[in-house]
């Protein structure tokens, strides 16, 4: 009794392998028909058909050979990636793989032997695994894209701009975390070395909120710049943020803070010895123009 239970599934598996080999043309044709019907109206039907044919052959070889599925998995990953690029959803790709069951079932039905039916259960499980594998490939590829984009965002969002000879500024946009602060700090310090600037303005107008951690990061940046022989001014402190900073009891010590970037620039210019024409004269000119 025990022996028959072990032998039977194996016999079923062999029968399915035979059917897959013998009726290759018929099963493959049916499979392509089903997938083409499911993805009607999409471009590149021929591309998908060619890929499915390759996959079918790899599947047959993995049955015939020692069960090595690396080829098969490689082809499936390629299919998943190419279909993802064409705008297919991952479940559509998985359904296309699952359609192979439907295609083979017709052959199994015609065959009608109990071995074939039993083997079909095993086959169904194998195809399920393959379908899920395409799903996993899709998710992995998607995750890699997200990680890449996050890195690109990190690079993009932290420009160091030169305001004047010897004055650079970093307009910070978005929430500051340790990773971003590290990038900002390195970029700012490198810019100080490259441009030989002695003054830096860190503008936090675009930072939505300042907590103790963000303040700590800012202080570290300022201290590092000081160690290199440059002075930092923090600008763009909005009223709410000033309130938060005082409420939290954060001590900025002798670090110069200014309300706006223009104030910070004026301060840095004065410190670097640039003479500024008086504001009053500008105002008079404006008035004359208005009249």
């Amino acid at each position: 009794m025990g022996v028959t239970l072990i032998v039977r599934p194996d016999a079923g598996r062999r029968r399915i392998e035979e059917l897959v080999r013998q009726h290759e043309d018929r099963v493959l044709k049916r499979w392509l028909e089903i997938t083409a019907a499911a993805s009607a109206g999409r471009p590149d039907q021929g591309d998908t058909a060619a890929r499915l044919t390759e996959i079918y052959q790899a599947l047959r070889q993995s049955f015939a050979g020692d069960g090595d599925t690396s080829d098969l998995h490689g082809l499936l990953a390629e299919l998943s990636r190419s279909r993802a690029r064409q705008g297919f959803s991952p479940s559509e790709t998985a359904s296309a793989v699952f359609a192979l069951k439907e295609a083979l079932y017709e052959v199994v039905e015609d065959d009608g032997t109990p071995e074939a039916l039993r083997g079909f259960v095993w086959f169904s499980k194998t195809v399920d695994d393959l379908g899920l594998f395409t799903f996993e490939t899709y998710v992995t590829a998607r995750e890699r894209i997200i990680i890449d984009q996050a890195e690109q965002l990190l690079e993009l969002s932290t420009p160091v701009v030169k305001l004047w000879e010897g004055i650079v500024a970093v307009p910070l946009i978005g929430t500051l975390d340790s990773a971003r602060t590290q990038v900002v700090m390195e970029k700012l310090l490198q810019a100080l070395v490259d441009t030989g600037s002695e003054h830096a303005v860190i503008d936090i107008t675009g930072v939505p909120s300042v907590d103790t951690q963000v303040a700590q990061h800012l202080l570290k940046t300022v201290m590092a710049a000081r160690l290199m022989g440059a002075e930092c001014v923090i600008s763009g402190i909005r009223p709410q943020i000033a309130h938060t900073i005082v409420t939290l009891g954060i001590e900025f010590g002798d670090i110069v803070t200014k309300a706006s970037l223009s104030d910070a620039l004026a301060h840095a210019l004065r410190r670097s010895g640039v003479e500024l024409a008086g504001n009053r004269r500008t105002r008079v000119t404006v008035r004359t123009e208005e009249e």
Binding site: Q182, M185, E186, L189, Q190, L192, V193, G196, S197, E198, K220, M223, A224, A225, R226, L227, M228, G229, A230
Partner: peptide, 27 residues
């Protein structure tokens, strides 16, 4: 103290050393 590299400055800050009595310059 002149010519401190960015990486060195960051390390010193992380170590908590601010070199209180030392003046610094870029080059």
């Amino acid at each position: 103290v002149v010519g401190m590299r960015p990486a060195v400055a960051i390390t010193l800050v992380e170590l908590g050393l601010s070199l209180g009595g030392v003046r610094t310059a870029l080059n």
